[in-house]
Design a protein around this nucleic acid. Structure first.
Lengths: 217, 217
DNA sequence: CCGACATCTGAACACCGTTAAGATCCGGAC
DNA sequence: GTCCGGATCTTAACGGTGTTCAGATGTCGG
């Protein structure tokens, strides 16, 4: 039973591993369920006993990758020198961008338009935790804290995305590091300096696309 | 010849229009070349006399959409009240994010991982132009100008992307506006306040993934 | 030993992007 | 006016895709 057991030990895990390798080799969409299955040594329909569809496999893989990234960022924060909360956030941002650039296809898949798998660690959470730490250390007013995670996540994610998709090119990896650090620092000092964006009494207006821009034509 | 001329007047344009509609209806990838062709009333292979492949059609469509967005942002800047360069940049950022949220599928396609079509207007350029305007108005030091477009583009693009893919949810369109404005303002004041990220003598180190992070395992 | 159950197989379906060979139409040269 | 060349579209086909379904195969508790 050692050569080719009929019951594969962990087909789901093997499929996820193979899919991730294939993504890394051929791009976020340059692979097929059939190829993944055949690489694992199994028929194409076997996968459907573990994943409802190809998309479900992608979602699960995305969750796995995101959890790994979150743990990686947590460690990057912990390794930051001097335990300065600001420096920790810079380290997290740098790690985020580095990761996307180093593994663009996997990053692209991980942040695809899927609803997040609930219950798994997420990079967003480590950003939030580090921002909380910054507030308790006095580096950011509590008044400026709400929504701050949106701002720094957006900044970091935007840089990562634009670099990963080739819309921005920088000379070498340390230029990437430098730009990421500058961006995080800028957002943090900017958030600290700006008073507040007027919370506004009631926030939900009709919610229809009433005052929308609408280029669409 | 009015009913169904054998030579379609502008097949390429019609295909692009149909593809854009289909993208809007079913998502950035929820359509096929065959469906686009059949909607235009033409066989599937007819498209290959105007586009080398489905991907080429996507690239062309992306260029068209990006050019439209650029023009839209230019007008948004021009419409900004008081002609304050800062306010103009806020207006551009807001327009960018609004657009992505209002037309998420098209936005997703437009910013896909294609190389940009050369020679067509690009949103990046209007950001650059507005940043130049900010410098000449004294709102940003010339020393801080280089690379500033990367920072503000990253911030705005990140917010747009995260909102469009559902990774961040906000209550209603004016919450989106407010967050976009806050983000742009934060980045601008942060860039103005930060001295400089040490340009560094030579920038290109071995460029191999030497000091890379490498989560990949 | 046997039956229940999870697991995987093999064949099939409709659809996809892409290519090749041929029919059709248009515009310009004579 | 006629004819021809080239652009334009059609029909048919190829291999590959996600997905489904009936059945074969292994595992395990009774």
């Amino acid at each position: 039973m050692s050569e080719r057991p009929y019951h594969h030990g962990d087909l789901a895990g093997a499929l996820l591993d193979a899919a991730e390798s294939l993504v890394r080799e051929r791009g976020a969409d340059g692979w097929s369920l059939r190829e993944v299955s055949s690489r694992v040594g199994v028929g194409p329909s076997a996968a459907y006993h573990h994943f409802a569809s190809r998309d479900a496999l992608v979602r699960t893989l995305s969750g796995r990758v995101l959890a790994r990234l979150a743990e990686h960022l947590r460690q990057a924060a912990a390794r930051a020198r001097h335990a300065d909360p600001r420096q920790r956030l810079v380290a997290v941002g740098r790690g985020y961008v580095r990761w996307a650039v180093a593994d663009p296809a996997v990053a692209s898949l991980a942040f695809g338009p899927h609803h997040d798998e609930p219950g798994t660690p997420h990079p967003r959470d480590v950003l939030s935790a580090e921002l909380d730490r910054l507030v308790t250390a006095g580096g950011l007013s509590a008044a400026a804290r709400p929504g701050a995670e949106v701002a720094v996540w957006a900044a970091v994610h935007g840089l990562a995305t634009l670099l990963r998709d080739g819309h921005i090119r920088l000379n070498g990896p340390n230029a990437v590091d430098r730009e990421a650090a500058r961006l995080v620092r800028a957002v943090l000092t900017g958030l600290a300096a700006t008073p507040h964006p007027r919370p506004s009494r009631t926030d939900h207006r009709p919610s229809g696309s009433g005052s929308g821009a609408g280029i669409t034509g």
